[in-house]
Design a protein around this nucleic acid. Structure first.
Lengths: 316, 316
DNA sequence: TTGTCTCCCTAGGGGAGACAA
DNA sequence: TTGTCTCCCCTAGGGAGACAA
């Protein structure tokens, strides 16, 4: 068991250490958003949001594969949308796969509270990252057992600390932290004919530790303290299909609806998980965004918000 | 993607193949019971069982770590126990960890149907394995990178095909299927001074593929067709703490209770997952066993069935 | 009987420039 | 500019008996 706080794990701390449960410290938001992709945004804490129980249920149905199509009981007191106050958002990453997700605490509010409605303005506070970063899709050579990672020239010059070109060849040691605050160490060298930037020593441990394959992407961010952050985005592989082994998907569906109905009846807070890369539909959206869509007739009753599909190039 | 049916994967089919979802064919019951441990038994299909919603809820609470202690709504129509007909049992194994679990379809029955009660006799139909098998807890040497697996003499002679002792040294190739029907190939050799049975080539791939550590156990079974089956039992490590990323534990708790209440009200079937190694309490037990306990005053209202703790030696 | 050590030897992998797209 | 190949070298690890618990 490591001490909490900054774990200065030596290079080669294979991320597969199965002993650590949960996250030791809070996830870096820039890195989280980087891994989530350019199209993902979360409503700000304290704002009003619209929660769609049905959309939420669909995310879970998409994550699990439904086993049987048992009828779900009706929840007559459950509306198709609920105006909620977003109390809390915590960012998470699966310790096994580095998959990012968010936990949100919602509290249903009185719908006829006109004041609250007006308070939610349309300030486009894009809490998205503006920091310097680069994202590269891994080639077959990058993930092969022979040799390291070929760093695009522009990317290396923009993100990495400058090399001392008086050395022959110019090289340095890079340290980068992943979502779990593990430190990965790489040898960054500028060599070859023609010259190019490469990550050699340490790279293969990262690839095997994160179980990366050609087609997956890596993401380097230089934060405001000039520290390097390191994330991954996996290619869209099969939907994991974690058949749960804990709860039937029926019970999950029911659980979502019953929890929402209970919270709605009591105006009590409840908790949802939002997995930006797994789900096709957003089920928690800013009230302002919803209102705007309503009033510009872009949405009609029964329609749902759908996330645009990410393109391969996005965020590169 | 492999063809369904018997996949004659070559030795070294690392079980970590992340592409296969679900099981291709039904799990071998003998192997499943072997991996589950000697104290686990499942009620026979078609029999009457007692289902405890609270015990079920506790298993899930034990599997997840509860994040917040939000109050669970009351389900006034939900009794503390439900007599159910066990419609169906399917055996499963987690494709990542090989953890065994069972899926059961239950249907609440009319409690005042005396006839059904009497029909559930106490025939101790122990559907447990009587086949030849051995189970060994892995030593540091067994899991080290240098060398293979030391097979206990009695075990090798009882389970493995006999060696041809005219060879020098006597050796053969063994093939064994795991829970997912993957074939693992090992070189079985009798050598050393003093002589002993060893598994060499192929063993380290198995250890790394299953991510076995010293203290975990392996299990070899010879079935009625003289085929070798191969399973694992992991040492009791930390409770995985899969913080789900899908559903809050509150929603799960609610889902269990609401699903049970719904099924109870409508006499409709519902599905539960039973994880024998994760949960401290059984929540589906044969009605006959329950009645026997009741009538011999071994159980009182409010008590729950608890599984004995397995000892390290059990099943060896 | 079997767990651990050490020794030996080889296969696989890291690290380099060549070469071409 | 950068993806792939091949070559070279070295080390991690498999496979063997020694030895002791």
């Amino acid at each position: 068991m490591k001490a909490p706080g900054s774990t200065t794990a030596v290079a080669g701390a294979t991320g597969t250490s199965p002993s650590e449960g949960g996250e030791r410290k809070s996830i870096n938001p820039e890195l989280w958003y980087g891994c989530a992709g350019p199209l993902v945004s979360l409503p700000p804490v304290g704002s009003l949001v619209v929660y769609f129980p049905q959309g939420h249920s669909e995310q879970v149905a998409a994550t699990m594969q439904k086993d049987v199509d048992v009828q779900i009981p009706n929840y007559p007191n459950l509306p198709w949308k609920m105006i909620c106050l977003l109390h809390n958002v915590t960012l998470h990453a699966d310790p096994e796969t580095d998959e990012v997700y968010a936990q949100m605490t919602l509290q249903p509010v009185n719908t006829n509270d006109k004041e609250a409605f007006l308070a939610s303005d349309l300030s486009p506070k894009t809490n998205r990252l503006q920091t310097d970063f680069f994202c590269k899709t891994l080639t077959a050579s990058d993930t092969s057992t022979h040799g390291g990672f070929s760093v695009p020239r522009r990317a290396a010059e923009k993100i990495f600390p400058p090399l001392d070109f008086s050395m022959q060849p110019p090289a340095q040691e890079l340290q980068a932290r992943d979502l779990h605050d593990n430190v990965w160490t790489f040898r960054h060298i500028y060599r070859g004919q023609p010259k190019r930037h490469l990550l050699t020593t340490g790279w293969s441990l990262f690839v095997s530790g994160k179980r990366l394959l050609a087609g997956d992407s890596v993401l380097f961010i230089r934060d405001e303290k000039q520290q390097l952050l390191l994330g991954i985005r996996r290619a869209n592989r099969q939907p994991t299909n974690i058949s749960s082994s804990v709860l039937s998907s029926d019970s999950m569906q029911i659980g979502i609806l019953a929890a929402a109905a209970h919270a709605y009846a009591n105006h009590s807070p409840f908790t949802v998980f939002y997995n930006p890369r797994a789900s096709p539909s957003e089920f928690v959206i800013p009230l302002a965004k919803y209102n705007k869509a309503i009033y510009s007739h872009q949405i009609t009753l029964g329609m749902r918000f759908r996330m645009m599909f990410e393109t391969e190039e996005s965020g590169t």
